[in-house]
Design a binder for these strands. Structure first.
Length: 791
DNA sequence: CTCGTAACTTAGGACCCCTAAC
DNA sequence: GTTAGGGGTCCTAAGTTACGAG
């Protein structure tokens, strides 16, 4: 957790300093220990040989306590290996654990052995670098406070970088890690320096998207490689050598044989029809039935290739990775108004079998290979014009700065246009995104009036107006999509609000104790089912009954309404208002409200994050963002549950032990205590050791021992509880998230400024909720949002 | 005004790769 | 060292909306 991550870092630093000087070596005061320190100080533990300052004494005592804790679990062989070893261990222990809590042993042991061969080098080598780094960071911080807002992003990035090594530092050679870290840091710095702070610049006049645009053109997928001779396609049991285009089609089909698609009649028929188009006359005459085709060897080859790729050595993978990097470097960027911007999809879509979603009538059709002759290039007149691949030419080169795409082509299956556009972190996308949320915020200001208006319209004498009002009610209340009409037979049968049909809703005068319930059941975008039972106001209910009169299930519910009419009306109510703005508005306002409701400042980070996820989830549910439950869901849930159960047992045990320890310490007299402590040979040795080396008396040490036992048990219980809580939170989160996709709303509907402000206010590091990609995409919001932002 | 389509956003699944746990 | 799981990225389909032609 990054919120604690600053403390281990600080502690680490102090400890390293300690190891050089010795007087103030033990100035370590975790907050939790304060009370205990006091009680110890005032208690028996006042006997010391040398005149130590009291604070130093305290610290040594604390140090001793920690050793005591360690002493029972870790076998410290004082007699054999002498002081050096012990001190080493202690150092290690403290280094790991700022709160002096003894943690699980397994890993520590390992680490100890790792360090043992070169204690001097391990304790000294990293020191200078570490120090340097800290200094650097402080410098950054100062800069940050001076320049305040402008450098906030920078500072954050630095911090995050600094945190990482603390948790990773164990293995590998120090130099390697240092080098890697330095490299990353440099890269990040570079990146930040190069970030285009477009949101601080003046906007272009309406409609102008850029003034200069230069790029290398799209990247074309590799040509088809014919099958090796030993991989054969069979028809009716006989090997047939297909001509390359037909062979290519056969391979695409073969590659999908393990997928459900290839069992669907529509898919098979579409494929077969398109495939035959690529056959020679001869082949066509021979191959007339897909069922007689045997793609087995092709599939085997494909699987082998996949397997081989997976089993490649690290070096081989690295080579491929570098090659890809090179391609990205060359084709993945453009220059837009003097800034280098990442392109989102610079690769031309390779040929494939069309995978429409749901019952798509065109599934299985062959999506053809795109040639440069199909591609339109868009760039500045005065820019370097991209070269088409050798022997080819572009369909067209145009210079249209009112659009944002760099290249486009028409896809053959649906006849739609495909575009090469910029990445989400670009100015063009970011500005649009920002604008989208600003429109939604404007809606907030007039939403009451608009709602009043449509409630009024429910009573209109005009049928069209009433339908519009009811549709509007759904869009507002349920965040339905607008629902354009679609051409029948071209796409799967899905609907949105305006295209709802009578068969998609059922009216219940009463249902489950509620009145006027509308039951929705239809397939929405991507054939995701929308199922919901919603109580509605009476006027809406009555209207629905009216709209459904004398209609068949297949008839339009809103026969006098379409999206154009609806949007036209909306834009008359507020500039820029369309149906989808309501989705954005309702999503963002819901997040804000839920966050307000669910989060407590006193919660720990895990709980805060659960709250955030729950707020996020409320939005995802509202917007019906679903996902297929992960295939391994049940299994991993069971695993987690098993872990929780075992942790519970551990907790019970720990509690029992604590109780016993308390009983021992309270119920027994000093003599008994003494006896019990002296009973342990190991503790005896420890006491001897400390009385020699730390100038603490036996008596105080005994007190320390007893105290530390109870304390240790307490800590164990506490830690167990924390872990259990964390796991339970995780399990809840997971269960609730089984079929809900949070990412879509996070990416497209939630004003990032809400999240940024929340993080700032409630002290959750932003990277807990936004990964790197999202932080890049929302750089504008991260930079400009103050704590008091309200959507 | 209707219709078609260009342009752009929104969407879920596939797949890859890193990390934590064993 | 291996592997499972999950986050992150890639991919491209499927929406919405604006706009221009007829």
């Amino acid at each position: 957790m990054a919120d604690d991550s600053s403390s281990p870092k600080a502690t680490g630093k102090e400890l390293r300093d300690d190891s050089c000087s010795n007087g103030d070596a033990l100035v370590l005061k975790p907050k939790k220990m304060k009370a205990k320190e006091k009680s110890l100080q005032s208690g028996k533990a006042k006997t010391h040989k040398k005149s130590l300052k009291s604070s130093e004494y305290e610290n040594r005592l604390l140090f001793a306590i920690n050793i005591m804790k360690t002493s029972k679990k870790e076998s410290m062989d004082f007699e054999d290996s002498g002081d050096r070893r012990v001190q080493l261990d202690v150092k290690e222990e403290l280094k790991e654990d700022p709160d002096f809590v003894v943690q699980g042993k397994g890993k520590k042991r390992k680490r100890k052995t790792d360090h043992r061969d070169g204690p001097s080098s391990t304790s000294e080598a990293p020191l200078p670098k570490k120090k340097k780094k800290v200094v650097k960071e402080e410098g950054q911080m100062n800069l940050g406070t001076e320049k305040k807002k402008k450098n906030e992003v920078k500072v954050k990035v630095k911090k995050e970088e600094g945190d990482r090594p603390v948790s990773v530092k164990k293995k590998k050679s120090k130099e390697e890690i240092e080098a890697a870290r330095a490299l990353k840091l440099k890269k990040k710095e570079e990146e930040e320096k190069q970030r285009w702070r477009w949101w601080e610049e003046e906007k272009y006049e309406h409609g102008i998207k850029w003034k200069f645009l230069e790029h290398k053109g799209p990247y074309f997928p590799p040509e088809y490689q014919p099958l090796p001779d030993d991989v054969k396609f069979y028809y009716n049991g006989k090997a047939v050598k297909l001509n390359p285009p037909a062979e290519e089609g056969a391979l695409y089909f073969a590659q999908m044989l393990d997928h459900e698609y290839t069992t669907k009649e529509v898919f098979r028929n579409n494929f077969f029809r398109d495939w035959r188009k690529d056959m020679t006359l001869e082949e066509k005459q021979l191959i007339k039935d897909l069922n007689k085709c045997d793609f087995g060897e092709l599939l085997v080859m494909h699987k082998q290739r996949v397997e081989a790729r997976k089993n490649m050595s690290k070096e081989e993978k690295q080579v491929i990775k570098e090659a890809n990097q090179k391609i990205v470097e060359e084709y993945g960027f453009c220059v837009l108004d003097q800034h280098r911007e990442r392109i989102g999809n610079f690769k031309i879509e390779p040929p494939a079998l069309f995978r429409g979603r749901g019952d798509h009538p065109k599934q299985g059709m062959l999506k053809k290979r795109i040639q440069p002759e199909d591609v339109i290039i868009n760039c500045s007149k005065d820019s370097y014009i991209p070269e088409p691949p050798a022997g080819h030419r572009w369909k067209e080169v145009r210079h249209d700065n009112t659009v944002t795409w760099l290249a486009s082509w028409t896809e053959n299956v649906q006849g739609s246009c495909k575009y090469v556009m910029l990445n989400a972190n670009s100015k063009l996308k970011g500005e649009k995104d920002w604008e989208k949320y600003e429109v939604a915020r404007r809606l907030k200001l007039c939403v009451d009036a608009i709602r009043a208006q449509y409630l009024e319209d429910l009573k209109s004498k005009q049928m069209g107006t009433r339908q519009r009002a009811v549709a509007f009610y759904f869009i507002d209340k349920l965040a339905l999509r607008a629902g354009n009409e679609k051409e029948e037979g071209e796409t799967a049968d899905t609907v949105g609000c305006c295209s709802l049909r009578v068969e998609h809703i059922t009216l219940h005068d009463t249902l489950d104790g509620e009145k006027c319930v509308v039951e929705f059941d239809f397939l929405g975008k991507d054939c995701i089912r929308y199922y919901n039972k919603v109580p509605v106001i009476k006027r809406v209910f009555k209207n629905l009954k009216l709209f459904m009169e004398k209609k068949q299930g297949g008839d339009d519910l809103f026969d006098r309404l379409n999206t154009q009419l609806l949007n036209k009306h909306l834009s008359s109510l507020m500039a820029g208002l369309t149906a989808k703005v309501f989705r954005t508005y309702n999503a963002s306002i819901t997040l804000q409200q839920q966050l307000q409701k669910l989060t407590n400042k006193t919660d720990n980070v895990a709980e805060k994050l659960l709250s955030y996820n729950r707020a996020n989830r409320a939005v995802a549910i509202l917007c019906n963002h679903q996902r297929a439950p992960p295939k391994t869901f049940d299994q991993s849930m069971a695993n987690l549950q098993a872990k929780i159960d075992s942790r519970k047992e551990q907790l019970a045990l720990a509690k029992k032990e604590l109780k016993q320890a308390k009983k021992d310490s309270k119920g027994s007299s000093d003599n008994k205590l003494l006896a019990s402590v002296y009973h342990s040979r190991r503790l005896q040795r420890a006491i001897y050791f400390f009385s020699q080396h730390l100038y603490i008396s036996d008596v105080s040490l005994i007190a320390v021992c007893v105290f530390s036992l109870v304390d240790k048990k307490k800590k164990a219980v506490q830690r167990c509880e924390e872990q259990l809580l964390r796991m339970e939170v995780q399990a809840t989160d997971k269960e609730e998230n089984k079929q809900i996709a949070l990412s879509t709303s996070k990416l497209n509907y939630l004003d990032p400024r809400i999240s940024v402000a929340w993080c700032k206010n409630i002290e959750v590091p932003l990277d807990k909720i936004y990964n790197k990609t999202l932080r890049d995409k929302f750089a504008w919001a991260i930079d400009m949002t103050e704590n008091d932002f309200v959507f």
